[in-house]
């Protein structure tokens, strides 16, 4: 089983440790992981802003680079969801893009495909789980609060394997943090307001860390926390899962 590791552009530049934790974890789980170095961006920022045309070339490139792998794994629910659900309309080919059927968010992949019964490591901290919109409502990493379905959270299931961790969730459990790509700069006032509210709900849990499967939401909340000089810390789920490696 060959795995292509996709490290989204902003994770590459801002959160390389998230990429490293992903690699370490997959490697620990005995998987054959390759990192194609000519990869760049999936094209989501342009498409969500209304420029699918600018995303097309990147999508074609992504398809070419990654279609040789059995699975594509990325530490970002939002980018994963874009490749999975939007590539078919971006690429508009008669054949469905292969990568759409092969891509997994790293948490989803470990939870649903690898299914380890335990993970080493201790993380004796209180964490508040950030349920990101695309993680919840597109990839279904947890049960969306609007739906009358059985309650579950793949993220909480995974985190529970780590010793010493205390897991919390904020009020308005899966409300948007206000990032939304270019939404954050096109509607700065609403975006900041949403971010401040979200941060407040996380802080109110008493957690020391905010954790989640989407570094983009964490980046947004981190920017707000830094401006407000809030002491809360940020960590990607995969970094906690790899804490014993």
């Amino acid at each position: 089983m060959k795995i292509g590791l996709f490290v989204p552009c902003y994770v590459n530049a801002i959160y390389p440790d998230v990429g490293i934790a992903t690699y370490k974890l997959l490697d620990y789980l005995g998987l054959d992981v390759c990192y194609p170095v000519n990869q760049t961006c999936c094209g989501q920022p342009m498409a969500n802003a209304g420029f699918e045309k600018e995303a097309l070339e990147l999508a074609m490139k992504f398809e070419k680079i990654f279609n040789q792998y059995d699975y594509i794994v990325a530490p970002s629910a939002s980018c994963t969801a874009f490749v999975k659900y939007n590539y078919p309309s971006v690429i508009e080919d008669d054949n469905l893009p292969e990568t759409s059927g092969k891509i997994y968010d790293v948490c989803e992949f470990i939870h649903d495909v690898v299914k380890p019964s335990k993970l080493p490591g201790r993380f004796p901290h209180k964490v508040s789980v950030h349920n990101s919109c695309h993680g919840v409502r597109e990839l279904q990493l947890s049960s969306a609060s609007e739906l009358n379905i059985v309650r579950y959270s793949k993220i909480k299931n995974l985190l529970s394997m780590i010793e010493g961790i205390e897991i919390f969730e904020p009020a308005k459990v899966d409300e948007c943090c206000g990032f939304g790509g270019m939404f954050a700069i096109e509607e700065p006032d609403v975006s900041v307001c949403m971010g401040e509210d979200k941060l407040g709900n996380h802080v109110a849990t008493g957690a020391e860390y905010i954790t989640g499967a989407d570094s983009s939401c964490l980046m947004h909340l981190q920017g707000i926390a830094a401006r407000k000089k809030s002491p809360i810390k940020f960590i990607h789920v995969v970094q906690i899962l790899a804490s014993g490696l």
Partner: peptide, 28 residues
């Protein structure tokens, strides 16, 4: 517009790409 109400994210000293290229044996 990002700077309105938010600090910019800080770029890592070394990107994932440079760490990877430096050799996963050493850094990872």
């Amino acid at each position: 517009a990002w700077g309105h109400g938010r600090e910019l994210p800080r770029f890592a000293g070394k990107s994932f790409n440079s760490m990877w290229k430096k050799g996963k044996q050493l850094t990872i």
